[in-house]
Design a protein around this nucleic acid. Structure first.
Length: 197
DNA sequence: GAATAGATTGTCT
DNA sequence: GACAATCTATTCT
């Protein structure tokens, strides 16, 4: 049986943790069955000083989960229609989080594909933040969920070579947008935006 | 394959 | 009232 990650995993620095998340398996034990996949792409968002982080504009009801204890879930809606899934990392009151940008489906592949209206094995089932939430059945109900005690879990897993690049679509963040805080598995076809490998 | 427009709603100015 | 850590369909080449 796969090993579920303990709280300590989420207590390390957000950049280190974002890199370590590549290869881990994100799982949702949902009503339609258990679904999940290998994480192949992540981005780190590091506190109020990081202008690309939602917490840069202060602590609000929306960003509250990011200020909570590590190992919990921060969900947000974007462009009015897509949910995005994030893992809260680091000590309480430090709004650090990891956006999961892409998965390689491995568990409940047929269910995920059906939810997305695609064939199993199609790269597009979960190769984007909004797509993976749709495929896994994650939305506002999972805001604040505990990854160490609930239907959403992270399992141990191995990864290949990890590459880095600037984060996607955060051009508004000035110099912060240039920081190489996106991590991905090199050569993996499920990565959302093809990096210069 | 690349470029473009349109969808749709919670959150903050 | 503007706009967002996006996705899809469509229209090109």
């Amino acid at each position: 049986m796969p090993l579920k990650l303990a709280r300590e995993f989420y207590q390390q620095d957000v950049l280190r943790c974002a890199r370590a998340c590549v290869g881990k398996v994100l799982v949702h034990r949902g009503p339609a069955g258990t679904v999940g996949g290998r994480i192949v792409e992540t981005e780190a968002y590091r506190g109020e000083e990081d202008l690309a982080c939602h917490a840069a504009r202060g602590r609000t009801a929306r960003t509250e989960a990011m200020y909570g204890p590590p190992g919990h879930v921060y969900m947000f809606l974007l462009y009015g229609m897509h949910w995005a899934f994030n893992i809260v990392v680091g000590p309480r009151d430090h709004p650090h989080a990891i956006l999961i940008r892409a998965l390689e489906p491995t568990v409940g592949v047929a269910v995920m594909a059906r939810r997305r209206g695609l064939s199993p094995g199609d790269r597009r089932v979960a190769n984007g933040p909004g797509k993976l939430c749709a495929a896994l059945g994650l939305d506002r109900r999972h805001y604040g969920a505990d990854l160490c005690a609930g239907p959403v879990e992270l399992w141990e897993g191995a990864h290949g070579r990890v590459g880095r690049s600037p984060r996607i679509n955060v051009d508004y963040a000035g110099a912060w947008a240039a920081r190489p805080w996106r991590f991905f598995e090199r050569g993996n076809p499920y990565v959302s935006v093809p990096p210069r490998d």
